[in-house]
């Protein structure tokens, strides 16, 4: 039987921690490996960002406060309707629709929405947006009713057109995360954040990725224009939803209920 050979023969260098110097050959060996590890690490540091999914562009200009005036409506979801300037033909909606939210992961509280519904208001906030939609993160207590006295403008008319009942397949997200609360604002890693937004009252959004890098984004509302309760478990997942597709101004809205999601399965 062979004896168990020691790894080192008698001429091998030997180092212990409290010695001041590492033997030269061992030192050279280690530093060569260190160079290899550094090279690999720096390659990874460049590769990982380079190969990330290139997300759709969304922004949140947190450091820029804007003051806007418009018509506050709580249906189908809290929004500000802002008059578009210039000459506007009949086919083009004359108001821009900006969804409203409160800071962090909260929606406009119901009592605030009730208080300002159907009134002309001014408010202050920061903007979240992508190429299709804009949301204002309203500073609390910054909403003021505009008193036009006898010159109150007429109530805005936003054209609404139903495109019928359709079954759509896409990813269910929180509108605020998707529109720029974080970028990227979707994916598995962001699911917890999206769920918290939706449970805080932020409207969910169905995002359908189409060929050629286009998307359709549907704001999801319940029947009778009230939020769909218990939708949070579906957020951040791929879903099939059956509902009424409505074009509201130049926004897409999907009216549905919980039983119409994934065929009613939880």
């Amino acid at each position: 039987m062979k004896p168990i050979e020691p790894r080192d023969d008698k001429d091998q260098e030997f180092f212990i921690g409290w010695e001041q110097k590492v033997p030269p050959r061992q030192k050279k060996f280690l530093y060569n490996r260190l160079i290899g590890i550094f090279t690999f690490a720096f390659l990874v540091a460049i590769l990982l960002p380079a190969l990330q999914v290139h997300y759709s562009q969304s922004f949140h200009y947190k450091n820029r406060l804007v003051n806007l005036e418009g018509y506050f409506t709580k249906n189908p979801l809290p929004s500000l309707l802002v008059k578009r300037p210039g000459g506007i033909g009949e086919e083009i909606p004359s108001y821009s629709i900006y969804y409203l939210s409160y800071p962090q992961k909260r929606a406009i509280p119901l009592e605030v929405a009730d208080m300002y519904d159907s009134q002309w208001v001014s408010l202050r906030g920061t903007l979240l947006f992508n190429q299709s939609d804009t949301m204002i993160e309203v500073q609390p207590r910054s909403i003021d009713v505009i008193n036009y006295y006898e010159n109150t403008p007429p109530r805005p008319i936003i054209p609404e057109k139903s495109l019928g009942i359709h079954e759509l397949k896409g990813e269910l997200l929180a509108s605020k995360t998707y529109l720029g609360a974080t970028n990227p604002g979707y994916g598995k890693a962001l699911r917890a954040s999206s769920v918290l937004h939706v449970t805080g009252g932020i409207a969910p959004m169905l995002v359908i990725n189409l060929p050629e890098d286009t998307t359709h984004e549907f704001i999801l509302i319940g029947e009778n224009n009230i939020p769909i309760e218990a939708i949070a478990p579906y957020v951040g997942t791929e879903v099939k939803i059956k509902g009424e597709v409505i074009v509201w101004g130049d926004k897409l809205v999907l009216k549905t209920n919980l039983t119409m999601i994934n065929g009613g399965q939880s």
Partner: peptide, 30 residues
């Protein structure tokens, strides 16, 4: 919320968006 207008003349900050500018639509609206 980028709006595309047609204007008979170049834009100036002083005049802004006036009534003789025609709104054509929204940029990149799918």
């Amino acid at each position: 919320d980028i709006l595309i207008y047609w204007s008979p003349r170049a834009y100036t900050t002083r005049s802004g968006i006036s009534e003789n500018m025609h709104l054509l639509g929204v940029y990149q609206n799918d």
